[in-house]
Every structure is written in C-alpha cells, then in structure tokens.
Design a protein around this nucleic acid. Structure first.
Lengths: 187, 187
DNA sequence: CCATAAAGTATCGACTCGATACTATAATGG
DNA sequence: CCATTATAGTATCGAGTCGATACTTTATGG
C-alpha cells in the first residue's frame, strides 16, 4: 500500500508539472525559457553561465545555447564575456527581463497552493524529496550559498562590502551573494 | 512570507517536474509518450480516445495524434474504430505496451518519496492543490469513476457483471470500470 | 434536411532535446 | 615550455512537442 501511495504522489507531481508546463506555454515565453529566466534571477555571479544553467534545467549545453539565443533575441537576456575565463560568458537579465518575470505563470500557481493552505507542508516535504532525488541522481543541489559546506561566514570580516568567503572558489562574498543560489553548492 | 513559501513550493514542484522530465527522456519513450501510456493503462473504455488523452495531457488533438503515431509505430498502442461513434477511435495498450510500463521511470521517483517518508502527506496536499488548480483552470478532473457525481452504485444490481451505472452516459458499469479514471468525471 | 458542432488527421513553424562535431581556451603533467 | 587532455561554448541534425490552422467525416439538434 505504501508503494501505491508514493506512486500516486509521484503521479500527482508529474500531472501538476504538466499543468504548469501548459500554463507556461501560453505567454510570451515557453517553459525552458521561463526556467532559464528564473534561474538567472536567483543565481549568483559565478553561476550565471550556460553550463550551470544546463545543469539546473536538467538539459544540455547545446539545448541551452539555443534557448539563450531565443531569449537574447527577445531582449530579456544579455551575454558578456567572462573576465575570469576567456572561454566562458556571463549571463544577465536585462531590465525587460526582470519586468517580464513579474508575469511569471508560477505566481498564479502559488496562489492555488495558498488557497488550500498547503504551503508549509509542501515546502518541507518537497525539499526533502528533491534532496533525496538529487543525491540518488548525482545531480547538483543549487542551494543558497549561505547553506553550503564551503561557505565561511565572516571569514572576510574586514571587508564591509563582502564579509564572507567561499572556501571552494576562494573569493569574498557579499550578503547578497550569500543569499543567491550557486552551481557549486554542496550540502 | 506566506507568498514566499508558496512560491518556493511552486518552484520545487516545477523543478522536480523537470527532474522527472529528464529521467523520462532517457528510456525508450519520451515524456509525452510515457504520459499517454500511463493514461491508457488507467482510463476506462469511454475515455481511451485521442481527445480525452489530449485533455489529460494538457495538450491538443493535433499533438496527441502525432504522439499516438509514434506509439503505434513502436507497437505499444493499438487503435480500433469506436463502435458507438464512427468519427472516433478507441485506444488500447498492447501486450508490449503493458510490459513497457513496468519500466516506468516514475517508479524510481516513487522510491525517493518513500525514502523520506512523505507519501501520505504529499498525496493529500498535492491532491488538494491539483483540485484547486483544476477548478481555477476549468480543466477536467479525471478522477476515478466511483468518486464521480454521476456514479450510481448498484443502480444496475440485477447484472452481476456490471452492477453499477453512469448517470451521465447511462451505461452499466463493472467493478473494474468503477475503479478506472474517466474523462467525464465531475466532483 | 440543414446548420453547426465535434473527432480525428495533416501540415507549418518555433522550439526542445540528445547526439555529435567543432573551436577556443584552460589546466596539467612531463 | 610544450603536448595532452579537459572544459566552455557553439553549430547542426533528426525526432518529437506544441500551438495554430485547415480539412474531412460524422453527430446532433432544430
């Protein structure tokens, strides 16, 4: 019976995912493009690259490259060459991109979650399930910088602008940096 | 803060949906094809049509038509003309189709839900959220026949094979019929 | 009988996605 | 220092999704 219930729950997630997917198609962007926009809004400066985006979207560099061409053509994303790696580019939401995100279809869906008062329960359970799936899959967690095992709070306290530090990349981090999600995040 | 939490939960569903989506691409079928197979396994005889499938998948008749061509070519689905409507066709999983469904990637995901022991909680919360989204969307519920407002338990008790009845379609229903999901389901 | 609606199919264009091949740059190890 | 190898990004191909539209066949309701 347990297996029945968990399979039902999995089916529900898949089906709700499909509803969201369909909702996302209606507007100016498609699901992959919405996903990319959301990621670029939340990712820190080390993580706004095509490769990291591909990992986040469970896609490939090739596909993401195409998605970014579409978003750049629509004026929502800008590319600029990376300063630290001349092979790499850094992605940035434009003003129009931020404005477009205000119409994110996911907001509508969030109101449905609130309407049944399931937000706390769902947030907890789904976080746990996602964590489990990520471990079993060997995928990346993309958690907030401040929750990472490499995060060193106030390790750079002399710098008022960037008081923290990343023990992996060995760079100073601002409070804003620490709140964003990171491709290198590990629990 | 409530809005924050519900948006987080919505993001989690979207992200987990993406993980499942990626997992589904790996095997012999793609996500839409897996969705169609799952539906055809669970749908009652009145609901195994391209149009009903399109509603279930939040897609269109045109797209589903293409999906069915692919599944028929792979030998997992058979079409036969409907007896009650000569415009319509009835879809059926083949033996190979049932066998293929044993490798449904969703089973793997269900084990992750069990691993964190969240199946009961998730099943309840997600059902409620899906119900809310369906109402607000005007989508169809696709619930089990026996939970429908048109279901008349034992209204045909004289017939041992089909003791129940559908008040909408006005047909006799077997116990098996009553357990399956239906395109006409209403709460 | 006729108008209208509905079921299914076919086709077009934009896009996703896996796979592959390619260029440019970085990192590593003699 | 240089050759090897790995990585970042791009380009391209084929299969498939998806929305949109047009079309045929059949139901249905005056």
């Amino acid at each position: 019976m347990k297996e029945q219930t968990s399979l039902k729950a999995a089916n529900l997630i898949e089906r709700i995912g499909r509803l969201i997917h369909a909702e996302e198609q209606k507007g100016a962007l498609n699901p992959a493009q919405w996903g990319a926009m959301r990621y670029l809004e939340r990712a820190n400066r080390f993580s706004r690259t095509p490769a990291a985006l591909a990992d986040y979207l469970c896609s490939t560099r090739g596909t993401v490259s195409q998605t970014l061409i579409a978003l750049e053509r629509k004026g929502y994303v800008a590319r600029r060459p990376s300063t630290r790696d001349r092979r790499s580019v850094t992605l940035e939401l434009t003003e129009a991109g931020h404005a477009r995100l205000a119409q994110d279809p996911l907001h509508t869906f969030a109101t449905h979650i609130e309407a049944v008062g399931a937000e706390d329960e769902l947030e907890r359970a789904l976080s746990a399930v996602l964590g489990e799936a990520i471990v079993k899959n060997g995928s990346k967690s993309f958690g907030a910088c401040a929750t990472c095992r490499f995060f060193r709070r106030n390790a750079n306290a002399g710098d008022r602008q960037a008081p923290h530090r990343c023990g992996l990349l060995d760079v100073a981090l601002s409070g804003e940096d620490a709140r964003r999600i990171c491709v290198e995040h590990e629990v």
